[in-house]
């Protein structure tokens, strides 16, 4: 759940004419930045005109012919340069439009999802008031509808979050909280599914750990994604070990599974957006391929590190660290 309090960094800084800052905001490197390329093009054109003039005056006696060659070369540079610059400009514009589109669609999707969520809750209250107790069949239908809606909400929230990461507008709250507490709370939400799949959670969490400073809700989502992956890719029964340890004023959270593991050739792509390992039996395991991308962005923005060790058909250990906060 997301709730905000005062004290978030301001988003509306003063706008001034600075084309390079605009490129920075659009996450274009200096060599992709149209205003910079325009300057480079100007300099290259001037140098080429001078060089062509010097060369042509050495080899051509007629000054009119030399001038014609210089003009021809300059025109060629300007045409090619403008084509390159407008290409970059279109890419930057398309990128911006894509972000706007995702944001708009996600917000539009949220409206019916919230109507569904609240109406379902009101309906449940209403039926319960009439009949006092829901039949187990009705209870199951409500669970299915609620879980389906919550999954859709999570998907939309993830898309919006990824969009914020891409737009470099992810704002993290700073609050002190217990990593152990949110870890255990999140494990509980998986308990029912894990039990039905004969998966057992083993916790190795010392009793009095220091707090961490960060965005509690977003770090809950990171833990949820990592637990979700461990459960999802544990094919049959097995143990999942969740550990928290204190190492040199850093808290290290880790999750170990005996699942399908990640093929070594694909490990370098694992934190990429939309990446799903080839052995993740895509027909069976659901997932957007955004969870680890999101996890890395949140952990790194919180000042921590994230990593993993994995062996195909043996399992994986995913971990992250966060600075302890007393």
């Amino acid at each position: 759940m997301l709730q905000y309090q005062l004290g978030m960094p301001p988003n509306n800084h003063k706008k001034s004419f600075n084309p390079f800052a605009e490129c920075h905001e659009a996450r274009l490197t200096i060599w992709q930045c149209p205003p910079f390329l325009f300057l480079v093009l100007g300099v290259v054109t001037i140098i080429s005109m001078i060089a062509t003039y010097l060369l042509s005056s050495s080899y051509v006696e007629e000054p009119q012919v030399a001038a014609l060659i210089v003009t021809g070369v300059a025109v060629l540079f300007i045409i090619v340069g403008n084509l390159v610059i407008s290409g970059f400009h279109r890419v930057a514009e398309a990128n911006h439009m894509k972000e706007e589109f995702i944001s708009l669609v996600s917000h539009q999707l949220r409206s019916p999802l919230s109507i569904f969520k609240w109406t379902l809750e009101a309906l449940r209250t209403d039926i319960q008031k009439e009949t006092n107790l829901l039949s187990s069949g009705a209870e199951n239908y409500f669970h299915t509808l609620r879980d389906t809606n919550e999954n859709m909400i999570k998907m939309v929230n993830t898309l919006l979050e990824v969009n914020r990461i891409d737009a470099q507008s992810l704002l993290l709250k700073k609050e002190k909280f217990s990593l152990a507490e949110i870890s255990e709370k999140t494990v509980e939400t998986f308990r029912r599914y894990a039990d039905s799949s004969n998966i057992k959670f083993i916790s190795d969490i010392p009793p009095s750990l220091p707090y961490v400073l960060g965005d509690r809700d977003r770090l809950s989502v990171v833990i949820e994604n990592l637990i979700d992956n461990a459960v999802r890719y544990t094919k049959t029964s097995g143990n999942i070990i969740i550990k928290i340890s204190l190492e040199n004023n850093w808290l290290k959270w880790s999750i170990e599974d005996r699942g399908v593991g990640i093929p070594s050739g694909q490990q370098k792509y694992i934190f990429n957006k939309f990446f799903r390992a080839g052995n993740s039996w895509s027909g069976q395991a659901k997932g957007s391929g955004l969870g680890l991308y999101l996890a890395r962005a949140v952990i790194e923005a919180s000042g921590g590190k994230i990593g993993f060790q994995s062996e195909e058909n043996k399992g994986s250990v995913f971990w992250f660290t966060l600075p302890a906060s007393g």
Binding site: L2, Q5, M8, P9, R110, V156, S169
Partner: peptide, 26 residues
């Protein structure tokens, strides 16, 4: 259902007590 930092910031600055995203709250 809006959730940008700017919307949240503006609401709190104008005097809202708290800001809740509808889809995320029952």
């Amino acid at each position: 259902n809006l959730e940008s930092g700017g919307d949240v910031q503006k609401s709190l600055e104008l005097g809202a007590t708290t800001y809740l995203v509808k889809t995320n709250y029952s």
